[in-house]
Each structure stands twice: as C-alpha cells, then as structure tokens.
C-alpha cells in the first residue's frame, strides 16, 4: 500500500537517524512512502498555546497536501507530528464551526480539507498492525538475542484520543521487540511523558522526569531504551550528561529508535544505521549483541504457597 510520508522537522536535523532508518525499514517491508511535497512544520506543542486557529490551519495544510497527492493515509514517524495530524483531523470532524473556519483559512492558500479523508498513522502502528509483528519477525535474520531492551512509547502513542494501542499500558512495541528476539521487561513507565519542551523552559522539572525514566530502565537491566519519538530521544539522550552531573548519577543508557533496532535484526549493517548520532554511545550495546549467544532465561521458582495471579485482559482496553 502507498502512504503519504510526513517526516517532521526533526527528520532534517536532530532525528535524521530516525528518518533514515524509517525509510530503510519501510522499504524492506514493502511499504511505499511518498513524502508530502512541500510539507510544513506541525507546530509541535508550541503553536496551540499562542493561538489555536492558526495552529489548526498549520496542520490542516499538510493534510490538504496529502489529500491532493491522492493518499488516504499519512505516516508520521514522530509521535508529536502524529498526534497533531490526528487531533486536527478529528476535531475538525467533531466541531463543524472549527471545520469551516479552518477551511476558510485554507482557502486563502487555495487549499481545502475534508475531515476524515486523510487518516494519520504512526509508523509503529503501520508496522505492527498492517505489516504485522509476526510478519516482521519472520523476516528477522539476526535476532536481537541477548539484549534487554526497554520499550519507551512516550505519551503520544495512545493520547489524547486513544490511538492504536492501550492508553496506559501499550503493547505494540513490546510485541515488536520480542519478535526481533530481544528480552523485553515490563517497563511500567512506558507511556509516561519525557518532559517535552520542559528541558528548554524548566530544566529542573525535566531532569527529574528524565531521571525517573532512565533509572527504572537501568534497574530492569536494559542495554538500551527503544523509542518511537524524536522528542523522547532528544530529551533522554542529549540531556543524560546534564542529569548525571545534576544528580551525581552515572547513567550511560543508549537511546535508540525502534527502526534502528529493526534494521539491525533485518540484517542491515550497524554502521549504516547512524547509531553514532546518539550522544550516549550505543557501541557497548552493539558489542554485547555481537558477542551474545542465545541463552535461555533461567525460570523463577514459584513457592508452593503462592496465590494465583489474575490473567491479563486480551488486547488491553483504551477506556
């Protein structure tokens, strides 16, 4: 299937590794991506705080352009872009007045957009739910055996309107990484916020949040945290040194994109996957992986007295 592709501004700079490996993985899985021609910034979380109607119109321009290219679905690898595209599409559908206001603005640029005509999809969603985790895992040539990877979804995978996974306890990335052969612990902060722009405007607040996230991953024995959003990557990676000096900690937690880890498992060369763009080196993780032999996990013994554990709900519930 052909999808419109919305790389987002960070693809051009801070998250070029994500952009590159997203395209590599998509090609390997047979997903045809056609970049939206002359797309503009989604406004991140900044535009809505200043003025909401231009913020809506800004995003709607991209939807209108995607529609004009003849696609009905647009893939965004960046969670913040994804959530803005989705939110604007849905709100325009929910509120007729907003719809007509936004379209009046678009008309000033000879564009128009019908809510519901272009569906925003996160790259993770398309890979896990269209291609399918099982299909991906069948394509694995070099399993990520021996690596403990913590899946960190960040906030925008399921929020605000409930996307393709459980809002509080998403499973998509867990399933994907398990399918790649990695050990995936239950990381309870998986959908917590990374602090967003607070690293810039309230560093103290942000560092506290980031420390909690990395600390739990370290406790779980993670070799790396795997992310699906450039903002999460930026905050956790670029600010790791600063938080170490602030709190006197010594974390060296590589923060990698899920597409990088997929590409690795699908047999692509590590040297081509831009791991070196991370400020925290991914080298030790990669060396461990190359040296690792798949060894079965020791099973925990259960005491005879232990009470039964309830079964989890299938598929989760978005509430």
């Amino acid at each position: 299937m052909k999808y419109a592709y919305y790389p987002g501004c960070s693809a051009e700079s801070s998250a070029s590794a994500y952009d590159a490996t997203s395209q590599m993985v998509a090609a390997a899985l047979g997903l045809e991506l056609e970049e939206i021609k002359d797309w503009n910034c989604c406004g991140a979380t900044e535009y809505f705080s200043i003025d909401s109607l231009p913020a809506y119109a800004l995003v709607a321009r991209n939807l209108a352009l995607a529609g004009r290219q003849g696609t009905s679905e647009v893939i965004a690898p960046c969670s913040a872009c994804y959530v803005n595209l989705k939110k604007v599409d849905e709100r325009m559908g929910d509120y007729p007045q907003l719809n007509s206001d936004v379209n009046e603005a678009l008309a000033a640029g000879n564009l128009s957009y019908t809510p519901g005509s272009v569906r925003a999809r996160h790259l993770l969603d398309v890979i896990c739910n269209e291609v399918g985790c099982d299909a991906v895992s069948e394509k694995v040539v070099r399993p990520l055996a021996g690596l403990t990877l913590v899946p960190y979804y960040g906030c925008y995978i399921g929020r605000p309107e409930g996307g393709f996974d459980d809002v509080e306890n998403p499973q998509t990335l867990d399933r994907l990484l398990k399918g790649l052969g990695a050990t995936v612990p239950d990381y309870s902060l998986k959908s917590s916020c990374c602090g967003g722009h607070m690293t810039q405007i309230g560093t103290e607040v942000a560092l506290g949040i980031l420390r909690g996230l990395i600390d739990l991953a370290a406790k779980l024995g993670a070799d790396a945290m795997v992310v699906a959003c450039p903002m999460c990557q930026l905050n956790l990676d670029v600010y790791q040194n600063q938080l170490n000096s602030h709190f006197g900690t010594t974390y060296r937690m590589p923060i990698v994109y899920f597409t990088q880890m997929m590409a690795l498992a699908l047999g692509m060369e590590a040297a081509e996957l831009k791991f070196e763009e991370g400020l925290v080196p991914a080298g030790p993780m990669l060396e461990k992986w190359q040296a690792a032999e798949a060894s079965p996990q020791p099973r925990k013994k259960k005491s005879k007295k232990a009470l039964p554990m309830p079964e989890p709900l299938d598929g989760g519930d978005s509430g």
Binding site: D51, L58, E104, A108, G109, L111, G278
Partner: peptide, 25 residues
C-alpha cells in the same frame, strides 16, 4: 554528530502558508 543544521530549511510555498495563517488569525 550532524544533528543540528546551522541554516533553516525553507519550504517553497512560504507565501501560501503565510496567507493561510494570516487568514486564520
């Protein structure tokens, strides 16, 4: 690490975008 561009990227239809945003305002 090549993660910061020193120059901004400019889209082609800046004028169209500005027209839309001004109208929205």
């Amino acid at each position: 690490r090549g993660r910061l561009n020193l120059r901004p990227t400019r889209i082609k239809a800046v004028r169209q975008l500005r027209n839309i945003l001004n109208k929205a305002k």
